[in-house]
Amino acid sequence: MVMAEGKTPEQVSEALEALLRSEGIAIASRVDPELLDDLEIPEDADVEYDEAGRVLVLKDPEYEPPYRGGRVGAVAAGTSDLPYLSECATVLEALGIEVHTEIDVGVAGPHRLLAAVRRLRKFRPHAVVAAAGMDGTMPVALNAMLDVPVIGLPTPVGYGLGGSGEAALLGMLQSCSPGLVVVNVANGIGAAAAAVKIVRVCLEGEKPSKKPRNSRR
């Protein structure tokens, strides 16, 4: 993973190529369209760019995603939260994880959130990432209604402290709904990393166990 923000095109290009050659996949976050135009991308790489989330994914044509079978819900309280959720979802999908997205299900419309919960339960995710700005209430409520890990992603959306994401972050950290995992403001990459770790453990647990053969004397 390369955070492109603050780096020169040459630095980002070198880091991506090194990752691509060693891992078969290279991901860069915070890649603005202007920076993308200046990058040197290997000609043999498969290229995916999510403009909303500003994520660039390079893959070797022979790359095999390691987490196929993984399922993660991606929930946005409002459409303004989508860039941060998209950053997370793009990383998850690049690693082979199926993502089910729900948009505009904030607590301003509880009926929409309840409908989203029903759809998420049918999807049976291993984890859910919930992005919200303003007071950050939606992930707290969602966590209370689901029996899988929920990762709260505070976003810098709203007014005053809400606009910086502080209100959402503090609200999630003070959650009355126990077990809510919270990452830093606008940290879609951190939310994706937490979800991947949960998926990895779940997939390992779903593998059929090998029964030891009965030893005979």
Rank of each mutant, 00 (worst) to 15 (best):
I151G: 00
S13I: 09
P42H: 09
A192N: 08
T137G: 11
G73C: 08
L170E: 01
A18R: 14
V55K: 03
L142T: 01
A76P: 08
M172K: 08
R200F: 03
L85G: 00
Q174F: 12
D32S: 11
P42I: 11
V129G: 08
T90M: 03
P125D: 01
E204S: 11
T8D: 06
L35Q: 02
R21Y: 00
G165C: 08
N214A: 12
S86E: 15
P9V: 00
A191P: 12
A130S: 09
G6E: 05
A194R: 15
V182M: 04
V181S: 13
L95D: 04
Y49H: 04
A94Y: 06
V117H: 07
L114D: 02
N214T: 13
G70E: 04
L36A: 05
V183L: 13
E10G: 04
G158I: 11
L39N: 08
I198Q: 03
S13Q: 11
N187T: 01
R118T: 14
G69S: 07
A77M: 13
D135V: 06
H100Y: 15
G162Q: 13
A116K: 10
R71G: 03
G69R: 12
R54K: 15
P178A: 07
A115W: 13
S177A: 15
A191G: 12
R119I: 01
P66G: 11
E40G: 07
P65Y: 05
L36E: 00
E40R: 15
I25S: 01
G205M: 15
A94G: 08
V107E: 06
R54W: 07
A108W: 12
K197V: 09
V148R: 06
G53I: 10
R118G: 10
L173Q: 05
E62W: 02
G162W: 05
I198R: 09
L113W: 09
E5M: 08
P154C: 02
G171R: 13
G24Y: 05
L161N: 01
R71N: 03
D135S: 08
G205K: 09
E204I: 07
C176R: 14
E102G: 01
L169F: 09
A74Q: 06
Q174A: 14
T90Y: 09
I151N: 04
A194Y: 13
G171S: 14
L95M: 12
L146F: 06
L35P: 07
A167N: 06
L19W: 04
N184K: 13
R112T: 02
E204C: 05
T90V: 15
S13M: 14
F123H: 07
G136N: 14
G73L: 11
P42Q: 13
P110A: 03
G162N: 10
C176I: 15
L95F: 14
P156L: 11
E166K: 13
I41Y: 01
L19M: 07
S215H: 07
A115Y: 09
R119C: 03
R213H: 00
A127E: 08
P42R: 14
T90N: 11
E34S: 06
E93H: 04
K59A: 06
A45S: 04
A168E: 05
V105D: 04
A167R: 12
R216S: 10
G78N: 10
R119W: 02
L161P: 00
G133R: 11
A192G: 09
S13L: 09
S22G: 08
Y63G: 07
V201P: 00
D38Y: 10
G205D: 10
A195I: 11
